[in-house]
Design a binder for these strands. Structure first.
Lengths: 329, 329
DNA sequence: CTGTTAGCGCGTTCAA
DNA sequence: TTGAACGCGCTAACAG
C-alpha cells in the first residue's frame, strides 16, 4: 500500500501538502493540487483511515447499537434495514462505524461502557431499540458525554436527538383503514410491551380513532409475541369486529387463532415484514422506511457531533404499513 | 481519558513497560506489573485501540460481510445470529471488527475493494453468504491478499477457510425423519437457488436418502422464495406424499398452497426460524447453530491471520432443524 | 528485567 | 502558498 509519503515524493511536494489536498484545505494552488491528485491516482493511494483517525482528534466514529433479541426474533428484518441504512450513509459521509449488540455490553456499568466506547475513540452512538428500563443506557445518554441518536424513544437533551415516525398518527391511519373498510365497531387492539416507548404512542392513536368514530376497543399487551397474540385473540376476538396489532408478528398469531376458531375477522399488523405474504410487492415500501430511518439516524449523529443540539426528528411513513388478508377456511 | 503516559508516570516506569504489561509480555517482574496495574486501575485507563492498531502492524482487523437481500428477506434472522456470534467472539478475543454489506461495495472492481479494505488495515474477511457467481469476490478471495473465511461455500486455499455444517447429511437427516414418520414414497423437494453452493449438497442428501429408501423424488428450484415455493407446491404436491423444502420460508409457502388446495401433506423446512410457530422452544437450538457458526468463523479468521492454512471446518447442527405441522382445515 | 529510541501514517501549527 | 517539524497513543526493536 502506497502511503502519503510516496504520494508526496512522486508529486514533488511535502507530505503536509498532500494532506491538505486530501482534506480539501483552501490554501492550495490549483496546479499543485492537480499534481498531487495525479500522483494519488497513479499510485492508487487511499489514505489509511486508522492513522487519520489517530491524528485528527475529530474524526467521527460512531457506534451502532442493536438489540436483536430484546423484543422478538422476527423483527431482525427491521434491524437489518436500520443497519443497512446507517452503514450506507456512513460510507457516503466517510464516517467510521462500529456495530454493537446490547448483549456485548450487558452487565456492565455505565462507567465501564463509557470507558470502552471512549477507548475506541467513539464520539457518537446510535441506539436502535431501547426500552424504558434500560437504566444503564439511560445513564450513558444522560451524562451527555457522547452525541446520541435514539430511535423510537423520546429522549432529547443537548447532545441527544430522537428519530422516529409519528407512531400515534401511523397507528391511527392503519387502524382507521382497517376499521372503515369493514365498518367495524368493536376493536381488539393487541399492543406491544408495556415498557416500550412506542407502545403508548400507538395506543394513543387507537384511542384517538376510537374517540372520533365512537368505537369500543379493548387493549391487551401481546409483548410482540406471536404466541401471546394468538392467545389473546383466542380469548377476546370472538366478540370483536376486527383485530389491530402493533406488529406483524402478532398479526400472524392472531390470524392463526382466528383460523383455528374458524371465524373471520379483519386483522392488521404494523411493520410490513416481508413474510407477511406474497402480496409482497408493496411491503417493500415499508422496509424502505426503516432503511431511511437508519440513514437519517447517522446524519443526525453527524449533526450532533459537529455541534448541533439535540432535537426530535420525525420521519415519514408509508400507509402500506398495514396488513390485511381475507381468510377462506 | 488517561493515556499510557499518565500510567507510566504514576507507576514510575517507562511507557514501554506499561505497554508490556498491557500486552502480557513475558519479561516483566511481578512487582512492577502490580504497580502498573494499580496505576491503570486508579486512572481508569483503557488503551486506545486505534493507536494500538496503527502502531502494531499486526493488529487484527476483520471485515464482516453480509448480504441480507440476496436470497430473501426472511433469513435476516440467520444473518443476525451470524453477526452476533462473530461480534461476541471478536470482543472476547479483542479483535477489531468492521461490518459491511455487499451492497456497500457493489459495482466496484476487485482492485477497488482490495484498496478499500487495505486502507482500513483489514487483514481478514468473513463472508456470510456468497453465491457461485459473485465474480468480484471470488477474485478477491483468489488473490489471497486477505485471510478469508467463507460460510457455506466450499472455497479453500492457502489463506481461505470454509466453515459450514454438513448440508448433505443435514438434509438427509431432516428429510429422513419427515419421510419415515409418515411412510412417504413420493417426495417433492423444493431446493434453493441454482447458483447457491449449499443447494447441490442438500440435493445430494435428498438423493442419497431416496436411494436408500427407494423413494421417488422430484426436485424444483424455489429460489428461497415463499411465492415460488407456493407455486411449485400448487403444481406438484398433489401427487406427492410430502414436501421437503430447503428453507423454512419456502416451507411456509408450500404449506399455504396445501391449505388452499385443501389437502394435507407433511412439510418440512430447514432453517428453524422463529416465525415457524409457537412450538418455538426447541427452535432456538437451531438459532444457536448459526450463532456458533458466526463465532467459529471469527476464530478461523484469527487462525488464518496468525499463519494457519486454509481448511474446511465442519460445524455440528441440530436435528431439530426441521419443521412439521399438522394442518387441520 | 527495564528504559531509550524510533517509528506507524497522517493532521496541523508555524515559519519561511 | 508551501514545507519542516511536532505529536496522536502505542508497539517494537535495541541497549543498558
Amino acid at each position: 500500500m502506497a502511503s502519503i509519503r510516496d504520494v508526496a515524493r512522486k508529486a514533488g511536494v511535502a507530505i503536509s501538502t498532500v494532506s491538505k489536498v486530501l482534506n480539501h484545505y483552501p490554501n492550495v494552488s490549483e496546479e499543485t493540487k492537480e499534481r498531487v491528485n495525479a500522483a494519488i491516482a497513479e499510485l492508487d493511494f487511499v489514505p489509511n483511515s486508522i492513522a487519520s483517525a489517530l491524528s485528527s482528534k475529530n474524526k467521527m466514529r460512531v457506534a451502532l447499537l442493536l438489540d436483536p433479541k430484546r423484543q422478538t426474533h422476527a423483527i431482525d428484518q427491521i434491524f437489518m434495514q436500520y443497519l443497512l441504512g446507517a452503514l450506507d450513509r456512513a460510507q457516503e459521509t466517510d464516517t467510521e462505524v462500529v456495530t454493537f449488540f446490547f448483549s456485548m455490553l450487558e452487565g456492565r456499568s455505565a462507567d465501564e461502557i463509557i470507558r470502552d466506547l471512549k477507548s475506541q475513540n467513539i464520539t457518537g452512538i446510535i441506539i436502535f431499540g431501547i426500552s424504558k428500563k434500560e437504566k444503564v443506557w439511560h445513564e450513558v445518554i444522560g451524562r451527555q458525554l457522547f452525541s446520541c441518536v435514539v430511535i423510537d424513544a423520546p429522549i432529547v437533551n443537548e447532545r441527544t436527538s430522537t428519530v422516529s415516525i409519528d407512531h400515534e398518527q401511523a397507528q391511527y391511519d392503519v387502524a382507521r383503514k382497517t376499521v372503515l373498510d369493514d365498518t367495524c365497531r368493536r376493536v381488539l387492539y393487541i399492543a406491544g410491551r408495556r415498557d416500550g416507548y412506542v407502545t403508548d404512542e400507538r395506543i394513543s392513536g387507537m384511542k384517538k380513532l376510537a374517540g372520533e368514530l365512537g368505537l369500543s376497543y379493548t387493549v391487551r399487551y401481546g409483548n410482540f409475541s406471536e404466541l401471546e397474540a394468538r392467545n389473546i385473540a383466542f380469548r377476546y376476538a370472538k366478540n370483536k369486529d376486527c383485530v389491530v396489532c402493533a406488529s406483524d408478528l402478532m398479526a400472524i398469531g392472531a390470524m392463526n387463532a382466528l383460523i383455528e376458531m374458524d371465524i373471520f375477522r379483519p386483522v392488521c399488523g404494523f411493520d410490513g415484514i416481508t413474510l407477511m405474504g406474497y402480496v409482497g410487492k408493496q411491503m417493500n415500501t415499508v422496509q424502505q422506511d426503516f432503511y431511511s430511518i437508519g440513514r437519517k439516524a447517522l446524519d443526525e449523529a453527524l449533526f450532533l457531533m459537529t455541534g448541533g443540539s439535540g432535537r426530535q426528528v420525525r420521519m415519514p411513513y408509508s400507509i402500506v404499513r398495514m396488513y390485511y388478508r381475507d381468510i377462506i377456511c
